[in-house]
């Protein structure tokens, strides 16, 4: 069982919201991962939809690359849409 692959679990808590990473678990295949996810992560009505994906299929950014990946965005405030005057009636922008 130590060799069982790791799966990442994503749960959508409500219709209309997006799936959110909630954790990981071990399973032999995606069917079992789905059942395990249901049993481990949705016991308290946390979700209406589950995605499971084997961890090895996720390519993650390297923390060592943070400087070149993320720092350049720091001084480019003009990329935020904060320079428009919005009418008061407009919510959720």
């Amino acid at each position: 069982m130590k060799n069982w692959p790791l799966y990442e679990i994503f749960i959508r808590s409500k219709q209309g919201l997006h799936h959110k990473h909630v954790g990981s678990l071990h399973a032999t295949d995606s069917t079992m991962a789905m059942e395990n996810a249901r049993d481990v992560y949705t016991r308290r009505q946390e979700g209406v939809s589950i995605w499971v994906v084997e961890s090895k299929h996720i390519t993650a950014s390297n923390p060592d690359d943070s400087e070149e990946l993320f720092d350049p965005a720091a001084d480019k405030v003009y990329r935020h849409p904060t320079f428009y005057d919005l009418p008061d009636e407009l919510k959720h922008m």
Binding site: L25, H26, N36, R43
Partner: peptide, 12 residues
Amino acid sequence: GPILEQDMALTN
């Protein structure tokens, strides 16, 4: 249980 996930499944 043999592993945590199955432990919880049986408990559920």
